[in-house]
């Protein structure tokens, strides 16, 4: 029995950290957030070269054949650096397409196929949104599609929860959010042909939620690191503020909340990788746990920075907003908890 990361997994995280500290430094993220296409292209290329697109594609389809745990470790680093990346959408698609042996897998691994996620209506359908299937073609609207920009395909769902892969020919309208490190769009489909029809399942949303939780884990860890470092430097009343118990306890509370979340993500990811029946339950619990811990840390770490935390100068707000979006993404904590309840037969 060993509940720990392997040597390979630690190396994966370390080497990705090396790539991101250069290609996704705060300066570069600021540029990308302001619409600098060259900075975004440079980051995309660096991550493609690293092999992120192929990570969850099975080896028989030209991928690396790694699992949900490895994907979570990657997503955690992306969250730590608030890196703009289509990795989450790619990983979720690769997992689904892999289980259906879909013909687009080799393209996904080589980045010729890029998939965005238009899945909001699976768990949160607004009036006027949602897709209808007629004669194998999809028509309708999906809100808040993730990584739809630059995508060749979109993974989406119909009114019955069935899953479809369609060519990204639909019209995109930008949906501006608080978080400029990722793009969201309203997508309109008209008679879009479906290249994959998969039945409704619990695993897809569970994996998406787990990866969002991993993103928050990384982003929240970065905020704690920044708060602890700031508290060790900033002086008031003739002392560094980190020596005041009021400040120290804020940092301790953040660490005490976040650290078990790391273990929960590992456990949930391992359960998904081993097809443990509890996997989707744990993934939903992880989404809820990290949403709550993340919200607390985003606020508290900002407060440790005092007035500077509120400014654009230190850029802390990028992490604050990333965590804020993650809380709602693929379902609010309340929705994740209701899913966990339903999966366990607690809710009617």
């Amino acid at each position: 029995m060993e509940f720990a990361l392997s040597e390979d997994q630690r190396m994966l995280q370390d080497s990705l950290k090396g790539v991101l500290s250069e290609a996704a430094s705060l300066d570069k993220v600021r540029k990308i957030a302001a619409g600098d296409a060259a900075a975004l292209a440079a980051l995309d290329t660096a991550l493609e070269e690293f092999g992120l697109a192929a990570l969850m594609v099975p080896e028989t389809f030209g991928g690396l054949g790694l699992g949900a745990l490895d994907a979570c470790l990657v997503q955690e680093q992306l969250g730590y650096f608030i890196a703009p990346s289509r990795f989450l959408a790619t990983a979720v698609s690769a997992d689904l397409l892999g289980r259906h042996g879909n013909a687009h897998l080799p393209g996904l691994a080589s980045s010729e196929v890029k998939v965005g996620l238009a899945l909001t209506e699976l768990f949160s359908r607004r009036d006027g949104a949602g897709l209808k299937v007629s004669g194998g073609k999809l028509t309708g609207k999906s809100l808040l599609a993730l990584s739809a920009e630059g995508a060749t395909h979109l993974l989406t769902s119909d009114e019955a929860g069935g899953l479809h892969l369609v060519e990204a020919l639909g019209a995109l309208a930008v949906m501006k959010t608080i978080d400029r490190t990722r793009t969201f769009h309203e997508v309109t489909f008209k008679d879009a042909p479906s290249a994959l029809k998969a039945p409704a399942e619990d695993r897809l949303i569970a994996l998406a939620r787990l990866l969002v939780a991993a993103d928050t884990l990384g982003a929240a860890q970065a905020m704690i690191d920044k708060a602890v470092a700031y508290a060790a430097e900033r002086q008031q009343f003739g002392r560094v503020i980190g020596s005041f118990q009021a400040v120290k306890h804020m940092c301790a509370e953040m660490a005490a909340k976040l650290e078990p979340g790391r273990a929960l993500i590992w456990h949930a990811a391992h359960a998904l990788d081993t097809s443990d029946a509890e996997g989707p339950v744990m993934a939903n619990l992880a989404k809820s746990y990290l949403a709550e811990a993340g919200t607390f840390i985003a606020r508290t770490a900002t407060e440790v920075h005092g007035g500077m935390g509120f400014t654009d100068l230190v850029g802390l707000h990028y992490w604050y907003k990333r965590i804020g979006v993650n809380r709602q993404l693929f379902g609010s904590p309340e929705q994740a908890r209701e899913s966990a309840a339903q999966l366990q037969g607690f809710a009617a």
Binding site: G261, L264, L285, Y289, E292, P333, R337, F346
Partner: peptide, 10 residues
């Protein structure tokens, strides 16, 4: 209850 369960599992 489920919020507590997430903490128990963690």
């Amino acid at each position: 209850l489920i919020k507590l369960q997430s903490e128990v599992y963690a």
